[in-house]
Amino acid sequence: MVPWQQRLATGTEDIQDEVIRWYREAGNGKAYIPDMIWGTLQTEAYATVILRRVVDFLGVPDDVPAGVAKRMERQQVLYDGERHYDVVLGEQALYTNVGGKSVMRGQLERLLRDIDLPSLRLGILPATAEVPIFPVPGFNMREGEANYELLSSGVDITDPAELALHEKAFAAISSAASYGSAAEGLISKALTYWNGD
């Protein structure tokens, strides 16, 4: 494990380049993100708030605009037709306040716009869903690797037996998630909340 302060010693742009390479090398990926929007689906405004908070909290060099630009660049993997991503967001992700009403409205509108992308299978895990596994933190997966972003560092899992458990956990979470029109309904309900006074 390498602490974030060390990995972000030159700012946020370089780590976003690492993620771009990670996605370009992986033909397919999976992600379970319980309480925020998956980085590859974030709007520019949402990503700006997230990276600003990272910089301020960790005290790393402030290159937020460059980091956000790279995060937007990585989203091209959703449109190149070469990869597929299976993503489950916790319903809480639709309500975690990142940047206020305007940012959240734009973010949820983006989810509704992109939910039918051929490269994406987007599920929403309802807050009241009964999941056939104990609660677990969010993680990303690609062939041969699972990744966790912790408060102080990132953790990469490569052991085959551990990866098999991650596949099993993702299958359990996916089985309880809502897809298609049901997922759209949950996103639209959250959008109504953010449109309120």
Results as ranks from 00 to 15, higher is better:
9 A>W: 08
10 T>V: 15
13 E>P: 05
14 D>Y: 14
15 I>Q: 12
15 I>Y: 15
15 I>F: 15
17 D>A: 15
20 I>E: 07
23 Y>T: 01
24 R>D: 11
27 G>H: 06
31 A>E: 06
33 I>R: 06
33 I>G: 04
34 P>K: 09
34 P>G: 02
35 D>N: 13
35 D>F: 11
36 M>G: 11
37 I>T: 10
37 I>P: 10
37 I>F: 03
39 G>R: 02
39 G>V: 05
39 G>A: 09
40 T>K: 06
41 L>R: 06
42 Q>D: 07
42 Q>K: 07
44 E>F: 07
45 A>T: 11
45 A>C: 10
46 Y>T: 07
48 T>A: 15
49 V>P: 08
53 R>M: 10
56 D>R: 12
59 G>M: 12
60 V>F: 11
61 P>Q: 13
66 A>W: 03
68 V>K: 03
71 R>D: 08
72 M>Q: 14
76 Q>A: 15
78 L>G: 00
78 L>V: 00
80 D>N: 02
83 R>Q: 09
83 R>C: 04
83 R>Y: 03
84 H>V: 05
85 Y>K: 05
88 V>S: 05
95 Y>V: 02
96 T>D: 11
97 N>F: 10
100 G>C: 02
105 R>A: 04
106 G>E: 07
106 G>M: 04
108 L>E: 04
109 E>G: 03
112 L>I: 03
113 R>Y: 04
113 R>S: 10
114 D>H: 06
115 I>Y: 01
119 S>N: 02
119 S>Q: 08
120 L>R: 00
120 L>M: 02
124 I>E: 00
124 I>G: 01
126 P>G: 05
127 A>Y: 09
127 A>L: 12
127 A>C: 11
128 T>E: 14
128 T>H: 12
131 V>K: 02
135 P>T: 01
138 G>P: 02
139 F>Q: 01
139 F>R: 07
140 N>H: 15
141 M>G: 01
141 M>K: 07
144 G>Y: 04
146 A>K: 11
149 E>Y: 10
149 E>G: 09
153 S>Y: 15
